[in-house]
Design a protein around this nucleic acid. Structure first.
Length: 310
DNA sequence: GCCCAGGTGAAGC
DNA sequence: GCTTCACATGGG
């Protein structure tokens, strides 16, 4: 099995190896971009669209296993952004001590390219929640409103000779806006969404009705896309920037949350005490044309090396 | 019990 | 304009 077999679709298989260097799967999938990946030993199990996939870091790259054979793996390479030249991105980062430390701590961390609706909905649910809690809310939302998705069996994932437990029994797709638009606020609160429930419901209705055209945003410029997203209730600058970065791939979208504020203060202004506005202005022009990428390195570095809580 | 969490919107200066 | 507060819920 080679990457050429996968990429060109000459072989239809449920297993594929993507020959990619400089890709830290664990850092990427656990860095708070996406909330639906589960680790079991050395495997990562998740659902992309309507497919379950099991991923494993290999010396030669990333191995992927699906429940059913695939003739075209572009849905996965696009999600994982395996075609990105990481060295080129890292070369644009400012050459200062904090950035060097952050990159050294998790080199190979990548930005994913997620579905806009799923990304938007997840981050609407993220405000003043810890990542573990966001994961719980999203899991419950999918269980209640998503469609069943076939699981990858242990034999598929590990081979028939290895008597190991399943990576996952099966799962649920992320509910589309049309489905959540038909839900009630009480049903969403039952998923522990709390005060975010009405925001999610309103956003689902605006997207489902076409009033908010998520598919059309990709073709617009950063400022216009940001403006449209921030018209949604419960979506301010931070959540908009997350969606712009993680779903639309705008490289200079720079989400500023409590972790990034802490990173900027501790790493760049340890003596002074600049207010958040000053810190945002600093970030605006300090981190270069891939500032969003730099942001993700700072975020993950702070969470893994200066944790207040996990 | 207490503080905090990948924030936002509304109300008060 | 900027600051303060409420908003649910649970982890540490």
């Amino acid at each position: 099995m080679s990457v050429a077999d996968c990429a060109e679709g000459t072989v239809t298989s449920a297993r594929c190896l993507f020959a990619v260097r400089d890709y830290d799967l664990a850092a990427t999938l656990s860095s708070g971009q996406a909330f639906r990946w589960n680790r079991q030993g050395d495997t990562w199990c998740g659902i992309i669209g309507r497919r379950m996939v099991v991923l494993r870091q290999r010396p030669e790259g990333i191995e992927a296993i699906t429940a059913r054979p695939q003739s075209d793996w572009s849905w996965l390479t696009h999600y994982l952004q395996t075609g990105v030249d990481l060295a080129e991105v890292l070369a644009t980062f400012p050459d200062d001590p904090p950035m060097r430390v952050a990159v050294e701590s998790c080199r190979g961390l990548r930005l994913l390219r997620q579905d806009p609706w799923e990304c938007l909905a997840c981050f609407i649910l993220s405000s003043t929640k810890q990542i573990t809690q966001i994961r719980q809310i999203v899991a419950e939302l999918c269980r209640r409103f998503g469609e069943p998705v076939a699981g990858v069996t242990a034999a598929q994932a590990f081979g028939p000779s290895e008597p190991r437990v399943l990576p996952e029994e099966g799962g649920f797709s992320f509910p589309p806006p049309e489905r959540l638009a038909r839900a009630t606020e009480a049903e969403l609160r039952a998923c522990k969404a709390g005060f975010r429930a009405p925001y999610l419901l309103a956003a689902a209705r605006r997207v489902a009705s076409g009033e908010c055209d998520l598919a059309g945003l990709g073709g617009r410029c950063l400022a216009e896309s940001r403006f449209e997203l921030e018209r949604l209730p419960g979506v301010g600058p931070k959540i908009a920037n997350c969606v712009l970065l993680f779903a639309y791939g705008f490289p200079m979208a720079f989400p500023v949350d409590v972790w990034i504020l802490r990173a900027l203060r501790q790493l760049y202004f340890p003596r002074r005490r600049p207010n958040p506005g000053r810190l945002r202005a600093f970030a605006e022009d300090h981190f270069g044309p891939h500032s969003g990428y730099a942001q993700q390195y700072l975020f993950h570095y702070m969470r893994t090396h200066h944790p207040k809580s996990k």
